[in-house]
């Protein structure tokens, strides 16, 4: 068997440790070694974004990193963005705006949007669309995910107005 490397990482603020082969992808490590299956795998070549997690706060593809490389870093997965009882703003916005259907792509959108809104708290509809343009969704046609980004921004800003009336203007 190949050599095992001890990996200690902080995931969602909790210290985790496991010994894994060097080739273990971070996505597999999170899902199968740590059993945090909220992070999904849709392509394993970096295109779909379903596996996006935050590495020290910045979105990265967990399918394009080895678990050993995450040692010593702080990782945030969708599980760290809120719980059923206490949803985070992005999760709440997606729920309110029907921003998901099958939900498979959703964790990658949540991590991506969470990081985006930290730096861009007041996006326009066009900017919101651009912000999610590195993640694939096959179900929603993105309309309501764009809406969700705007709605999440409102929730975070605390204005909490109706998100529905901030429709994207047709070109």
């Amino acid at each position: 068997m190949s050599e095992l490397f001890p990996v200690s990482v902080s995931v969602n603020g909790v210290a985790h440790g496991a010994s894994v082969p060097a080739r273990r992808l971070l996505s597999d490590f999170l899902r199968h070694d740590l059993r945090l299956t909220g992070t999904h795998v849709g392509c394993e070549h970096g295109v779909c974004g379903a596996c996006t997690v935050l590495l020290d706060g910045a979105p990265v593809r967990s399918c394009l990193m080895f678990a050993v490389q995450a040692a010593g870093h702080e990782i945030t997965t969708v599980e760290g963005c809120g719980t059923i009882e206490a949803m985070g703003p992005v999760q709440q916005a997606l729920t309110e705006s029907h921003g998901l259907q099958c939900g498979f792509c959703t964790p990658g959108f949540i991590t991506t949007i969470t990081a985006y809104l930290r730096e861009n708290p007041e996006p326009t509809a066009e900017e919101a669309r651009e912000a999610i343009s590195g993640n694939l969704c096959r179900c929603t046609g993105y309309q309501n995910i764009v809406k969700s980004v705007l709605r999440a921004a409102e929730i975070i800003r605390g204005t909490d107005a109706e998100a529905g009336d901030r429709q994207e203007a047709p070109a």
Partner: peptide, 9 residues
């Protein structure tokens, strides 16, 4: 170059 998440890495 690619998408922001790719550029982060």
């Amino acid at each position: 170059v690619a998408h922001p998440a790719i550029r982060n890495r």
